[in-house]
Design a binder for these strands. Structure first.
Length: 263
DNA sequence: AACACGACCTGGTAGC
DNA sequence: TGCTACCAGGTCGTGT
């Protein structure tokens, strides 16, 4: 489920819950395939950072837990191991008795324990952070220049801009009034500037609204996106013009858009 | 370059 | 109720 806003909210909740705590026991469950890690104990959690859709949990032994949540991953703290769901893949007991749980029903996530240098290297190939000062209309324009690729797959490619996934790419394009199939390189400067602004806005709004919602909940996943004007709304009327939202296939993924509002 | 497609995995739901 | 088919917020590798 996690794109940038979800991962960011998870990061903030995690930081509040675990910073300065020491891991005293590791439980690995169903941890095959993409997840690999040794056991972990006696190390203090010193930081929880995010880069794109990756979480980096910095440890006192100069190593880092590098986590990608895949499609269905979640990371949170429970008071008791018995509260961890059946689909849990790893758990870390903290020195206050609580458990940091990596829950991942579809098991498409990744969790690995690497050196700080290795972690840095792995996230190095990611593109610009869309909520950083580095992400400007000019940068977006220069990334787009000369590319004939449809704008939506372009936005979802983590090498250019890191953190947008299927939902927020579709939502930002709807807000910007841009058709997802429009070749990114032939969008006007003004439209790219508008897209830039709406990417930032859509992400910030989602973080804010989920962060507020997260204050009330202890451990459960924030169920749905606060901003879904088009995503998964095929056949339903567009909130702006009333025409039915369309679904199309792009690069193997569903794209939702309004044929009236998006050109 | 820009796709399509399959692999990796499991669960929810719509339709019969 | 039970079965099937399709859908799903991601990434990676291969083929065309």
């Amino acid at each position: 489920m996690p794109e940038l806003p979800e991962v960011e909210v998870i990061r903030r909740r995690l930081w509040e819950a675990v910073h300065g705590r020491t891991v005293v026991e590791t439980k690995l469950v169903r941890l095959s395939g993409r997840a690999s890690i040794g056991t972990l104990h006696g190390v203090r959690i010193e930081s929880v950072d995010r880069r794109g859709k990756f979480l980096l949990v910095g440890l006192s032994d100069r190593r880092s837990l590098l986590i990608h949540l895949g499609m269905t991953g979640d990371l949170y703290v429970v008071n008791d191991w018995r509260q961890a769901p059946r689909t849990t893949r790893a758990g870390f007991r903290l020195d206050d008795g609580r458990w940091l749980v990596f829950n991942d029903p579809r098991a498409l996530g990744k969790l690995e324990l690497v050196s700080l240098a290795e972690a840095a290297k792995k996230v190095q190939r990611l593109g610009v952070e869309p909520l950083s000062a580095e992400f400007t209309p000019e940068l977006l324009a220069s990334l787009a220049r000369g590319r004939r690729q449809p704008v939506k797959p372009f936005l979802m490619d983590q090498r250019w801009v890191a953190g947008l996934g299927n939902i927020y790419a579709a939502e930002a394009l709807f807000e910007a009034g841009i058709h997802p199939g429009h070749p990114v390189g032939s969008l006007s400067r003004a439209r790219l500037a508008r897209l830039h602004r709406l990417i930032v806005q859509v992400l910030e709004r989602a973080i804010e609204s989920m962060w507020n919602a997260a204050q009330d909940q202890q451990a459960s996943w924030i169920e749905h996106t606060p901003v879904a004007s088009v995503y998964r709304r095929a056949g339903q009327p567009c909130l702006r013009c009333g025409r039915p939202i369309q679904r199309m296939r792009q690069a193997g993924r569903s794209t939702y858009y309004c044929p009236g509002c998006q050109r």
